[in-house]
């Protein structure tokens, strides 16, 4: 009988067939279990023992035959396909570069205890200008090329404008914190009347604001140095140049060494075309002007602070080349190709 079973197993061509045979012979109600059931009726213990041994031996033989036939079938079935063929195509989408950059910025500043906030994009002119040491007649306001909207003006805070910079959040944050130390990163859409290869009427800024007792220029350098190294890489240096802004005193512009030529002004294809003498402008910064602290209801005799405002698109373009900024907001998907 065992030979017959083994022959049957050896003729099986597929794993499915073998599974059926396995149930048929080795299953709960299979051939061997039935044989063992029959033993119950044998009364002679010696005969019972011999028969039992015999059945078991046959069963082991069948198991061996089954296993070797499984291996034989598997060998036959081994793939002959090219494993280097492309995988099945799964279409994925993409996150916008601005989101990625904002996330990076947020995380870099979170490491040094700066929290991210969000302030209005349509804002009263008081917060966008007046509170930042730019009274209505100040010519510096013209430079912002700002947009106005038809929203209802406030008797206290003036007309509604489109916030031309994230600095509009400075005094709002000072009010919110009511004298507690400030470590703010404000990231928002900003709007100005500029539209060319490197400007779009809508763009994003990130604003750092740090207010506390004994905050000084070295802390501003430290925070920006931290950002520059974490974001651009540890071979990047920063420098401060004197500058002028209405809402900071002293004021600086911050440069980083050129991310293309590493400040050498030379690239493989000749003179670096990206930077001015090895440096790239990162953006403006400075110590918060006493008049701004005053507007923020903060005692400038006790507290000092610094602020900076950099462009999100700007740092993205400094790190990754982008030939036309307008592409980012065009609605075209070719930025993802």
């Amino acid at each position: 009988m065992a030979n017959q079973i083994i022959r049957e197993i050896q003729q099986a061509k597929s794993l499915d067939d073998l599974e059926v045979l396995k149930t048929k012979f080795l299953g709960k109600k299979g051939y061997f279990n039935q044989q063992l059931q029959k033993l119950k009726s044998v009364s002679d213990p010696i005969q019972k023992k011999n028969l039992g041994l015999n059945i078991n031996n046959q069963k082991q033989e069948v198991i061996r035959a089954l296993n070797s036939q499984i291996q034989a079938v598997l060998r036959q079935k081994e793939p002959v396909t090219d494993p280097t063929l492309p995988g099945t195509k799964i279409s994925i989408g993409a996150i916008h570069p601005i989101t990625r950059t904002i996330n990076e910025i947020t995380e870099i500043f979170a490491k040094i205890g700066f929290y991210r906030v969000s302030y209005p994009e349509i804002e009263y002119e008081y917060f966008s200008f007046d509170s930042l040491n730019m009274p209505p007649s100040h010519p510096a306001r013209d430079e912002f090329e700002s947009f106005t909207v038809d929203g209802e003006a406030s008797s206290t805070f003036g007309k509604m404008v489109l916030s031309p910079h994230t600095s509009s959040g400075q005094v709002r944050e000072m009010w919110r914190m009511k004298g507690k130390p400030v470590r703010m990163i404000n990231i928002a859409r900003c709007f100005r009347r500029n539209w060319d290869v490197t400007h779009t009427p809508m763009f994003h800024q990130f604003e750092g604001l740090c207010i506390d007792r004994n905050i000084n220029i070295t802390h501003l350098k430290g925070a920006i140095n931290h950002f520059a190294k974490e974001y651009f890489g540890y071979d990047v240096q920063i420098r401060l140049r004197p500058y002028h802004f209405q809402f900071t005193e002293p004021s600086f512009e911050i440069d980083t060494t050129c991310t293309i030529c590493q400040g050498t002004q030379k690239t493989k294809s000749g003179k670096c075309r990206v930077c001015k003498s090895g440096w790239l402008e990162l953006g403006g910064a400075g110590m918060v002007h006493p008049n701004v602290l005053k507007a923020g209801k903060i005692n400038s005799q006790k507290y000092t602070g610094w602020a900076f405002g950099f462009g999100v698109e700007r740092v993205y373009m400094m790190k990754h080349q982008l030939f036309d900024l307008r592409k980012l907001f065009s609605g075209q998907l070719d930025i993802y190709q």
Partner: peptide, 27 residues
């Protein structure tokens, strides 16, 4: 303002010659 005088001294002294420190941590 006195801050204007600070700017004059600090820029001539050299911003590069000032230290670099992280702002003290607060929460």
């Amino acid at each position: 303002l006195k801050q204007d005088l600070i700017e004059e001294v600090a820029r001539i002294y050299g911003y590069n010659n000032l230290g670099t420190n992280l702002p003290p941590f607060v929460f």
